[in-house]
Design a protein around this nucleic acid. Sequence first.
DNA 1: GGTAAAGGATCC
DNA 2: GATCCTTTACCA
Length: 733
Amino acid sequence: VVQVAVDAPLRQPLDYLPPPGCVAKDLPLGARVRVPIGRRRAVGVVAAHAPSSVLPLAQLRPVLEVLDAEPLLQPALLSLLLWTADYYHHPVGEVLAAALPRGLRDGAAASALVDRWRLTAAGAAALQAGEPARAPRQRQLLQWLAARAGAVAGEIDAEFGDWRATVRALTARGWIERDTVQTAAPWPQVGPSLADPAIGAAPPLHAGQHAAIDAIDAARYQAFVLHGVTGSGKTEVYLQCAQRALNRGRGVLVLVPEIGLTPQLVARFSARLSAPIAVWHSGLTEGERLAAWRAAREGSVRVVIGTRSAVFAPLADPGLIIVDEEHDASYKQHEGGCRYSARDVAVVRAQQCDTPVVLGSATPAFETLRNIELGRYRVLPLARRPDQAPAPRVALVDLRAHAASGGIATPVLAAVERHLAAGHQALIFINRRGYAPTLLCTACGWIAPCQACDARLTVHRSAALLCCHHCGAEEPLPERCPRCGFRVKPVGQGTERVEETLRGHFPQVGLARLDRDTARRADALKETVRAVMSGEARILVGTQMIAKGHHFPEVTLVAVLNADQGLFATDFRAAERLAQTIVQVAGRAGRERVQGEVLIQTDYPEHPLLHSLLDGGYDTFAATALAERRAAAWPPFGRLALLRASSRSASGALDFLTSARACAPRTDGVRLLGPVAAAMARRAGRHHAHLLLEAHERAPLHRLLDAWLPRIQELPQARRARWALDVDPLGID
DNA sequence: GGTAAAGGATCC
DNA sequence: GATCCTTTACCA
């Protein structure tokens, strides 16, 4: 019996018989097969062999067709995918399907097929007889083909210009014939155009980098945490370790949070490494994805740089795995499909391949810090480079003690002026796009609400729209209150308004804004980066986006306008994220030799979290915050799983969760909390709720989930709600 | 008696 | 998720 995982929400693979005349070894693990399922046919992956089935053999149907004689998924990758399905308790067929490009899911050949043309016996005879006498082009091609065993389309392309008609004529006369051959997928080496000489040279290494490279290079499986601030030289460590892995004939997998924001990293890798690189992200077309997949599997690409899903790239023989900015939330899939953490899967992949994995960050996730403490991960500290400017001065600006205009306190405006006068640039960070988060009627108190969500609409003034940042709804910006007809006014600050305020204060200074709205077009992002790099723009206002990827060498002042949002949020991870963001943005301050300045506006200058961050830096802050987490038994000291549900009706989700809770097996060491409505209960017209599972240890939690999920799936209420299990959720909302 | 929409079961 | 079958609603 072969157990086949098909793309359907089924917890287990289905049992099939081998096709007539085949034995199990003709259907290797990881090969695709076409199988009948109900009234349809589907492509599935052989996940296991078994001597027998729990069903009577008479009920099993035979496999229709074996699509791969050799496994499409090599054993190591298959077992990684099976582990992922198991750990995240997601249907195995869906996990496997999600790891394959569309073409391969539909049954395309594992390797690219190309047309090859060859002379037939009749063709050779015709050539001997001097034919074709009156078709010089046909004769030319026939002679050229006679001199070789055959030629693929690409080769004919290179030799003859437009040859299709000629080939068609020769084929019609029976002088040449076509067959298809598999080729190793060719892969373009990134050309010297991208290989900027400025980033092509290896800088001298400092001691910390030497130590890190030697440790990583000497290791088999080991998770390393490369812990160093912006500019401490993490990328150089990645590069040198990657080149050493390549020199040993192995492949390198590099995960990054967002490819669009890290062109500098990709450029440095292509300029410095001696192997072709594939870039892997959600923006690829299906054709590109298929080509990259085949190239990685066949070894014509040995370096893959990509976002979350690249952790499942079929890289033949990984010798090094790198996760840059490992604390970044985008590594965790948080909606749709299997909710895996690419960082955690990367560590498992490294373990299975017995290779080192490098987790790089200036602000490691608390989970990672805990793993260091437990001795599972080994920290490699990178100190500030000796030629680097000293750490920036960080200070709080007490919003209660200073006047503010448009959300910017006077001392911040003064600092901007000072840094501009010194010829430098300023970076203003506010984590909220749009003009203002609220539109308020000054007479009756009406606040523009979203029709589909429990949320307020954000004012986007230049587009003259009210937008919901949760469901994407848009409506025209009203001039008067729709309830009482009085004047309405935008309340609060977003990037757009901060930009306007700063323009008012510094009318002569070039100003740029970077957020999801301005970066909608790819070239707009490039243009903004160029304007800041060239000094044309000297103030940059933006969200999170300005903190990632690009380094602007002339920036010496960074202001954080709305830090308080993170101080009192209900989410237990809010403080961790706030500290990471502040450190990351602060890392943008300071140039070669000039010390930078960071100002953080707050209404709560006495807040202990801000103090531990300012006085002792991220590590001290983390120690304080981790103690709180330990006391509350929150992650990383406990394990969580979250059963989320939503429904159109107000009660559907809660009904489902209540029944789910009722059928949960009692397990020592696991607590069930809820169900409760989500913090924002209504989103995009659906009502959201969840049930939280809390455990001290991983094992009992997963034991419970194993027994519980099949029961949940059977519940009649499960059909009336959308639901998903999130193992190790990042947030509880 | 007819159609259309909603609900449910099953997939090996 | 796809498919097929059953139930229910509604109308002429």
